[in-house]
């Protein structure tokens, strides 16, 4: 039951997209989102969708996988669409009490929903094709200049990678505790909402206790392996900014430029 969390999942591979430097991919995501927010008409959205499909194809990510990532967030998409539906201006197509749907509203709703879906899929493409470790590494390097402002970038990156490392361990533990409580007659999926919430207490308390104990032991083990803050760490795996990364960033620049141009083309 807990095994099917796709959020932040990584699909190992050796495609062009996989081989790109994580920094490039992070910049790409930021650029892509910028271009997405620049899009105001059909052509803009078509372009962004085409880019997404191309990326997915290059990374050998099946459309089904990409869409399944949307499932847990579908509520947000629908909610945004509905809100926007009633916010249009112009002549009403349908009216009831305070609700008023216009052609403009429908347009907005469709655009907003597409925008959010593209944004989510774009972000998932990044996590699908980049290992969490590379991602943390990339973030650490990109945010490196903030160290001068005393932002503990390396420490934050370390926290993130440890969190990622312990997700499977804690999921396993949750499963174990759930089984133990079920064996004692606990039920997690029947009863009213309040009853279910209450049933979680005997699950969460042992989980927290164990997480704290783990944290304590991990801290000692890390100290034993000479972890200390403030020192100059090196990395075994160096990030290499290759020619393909330069090309990728040039393509991104073109994409943003085209998005700006399309903004001023009618439809």
């Amino acid at each position: 039951m807990l095994k099917d969390i796709t959020l932040g999942q990584y699909f190992p591979g050796d495609t062009l997209i996989h081989r790109l430097d994580p920094r490039t991919k992070l910049i790409w995501l930021v650029g892509y989102i910028t271009a997405l927010f620049l899009a105001t008409n059909v052509w803009g959205y078509v372009l962004m969708l085409a880019v997404l499909v191309l990326e997915a194809a290059l990374g050998h990510i099946r459309p089904k996988t990409l869409l399944s990532g949307l499932k847990p967030l579908i509520f947000i998409v629908i909610f945004t669409a509905v809100i926007n539906l009633f916010y249009g201006s112009g002549e009403a197509l349908w009216e009831w009490w305070i609700f008023r749907i216009t052609a403009d509203g429908i347009r907005r709703a469709v655009f907003m929903a597409s925008r959010i879906m593209l944004l989510i899929c774009g972000s998932f493409l990044l996590t699908y094709t980049t290992s969490p470790l590379q991602l943390t590494d990339g973030l650490e390097r990109l945010l490196g200049p903030l160290k001068k402002l005393r932002v503990p970038v390396s420490e934050l990156a370390m926290m993130m990678s440890i969190a990622l490392r312990f997700i499977p361990t804690l999921i396993e533990e949750t499963d174990k505790i759930m089984s133990a409580q079920k064996a004692r007659g606990a039920s997690f999926d029947t009863g009213k909402l309040t009853e279910r919430a209450r049933a979680l207490v005997p699950l969460l308390i042992p989980l927290f206790v164990s997480a704290f104990r783990r944290a304590d032991e991990l801290a000692t083990a890390m100290e034993c392996r000479c972890y200390h803050t403030g020192g100059a760490r090196t990395r075994m795996k160096q990030l290499v900014f290759a020619r393909r990364d330069v090309v990728a960033l040039l393509v991104l620049a073109v994409l943003v430029a085209v998005a700006i141009v399309l903004r001023h083309v009618g439809v």
């Binding site: 969490p132 990678s161 490392r165 783990r214 991990l218 972890y227 075994m236 795996k237």
Partner: peptide, 18 residues
């Protein structure tokens, strides 16, 4: 509770990196 990284070799590299 001693393994810090999500890939075996990255974990082994932890101490020398430090």
């Amino acid at each position: 509770n001693q393994i810090v990284a999500s890939v075996v070799e990255d974990d082994v590299a932890f101490a020398p990196e430090n």
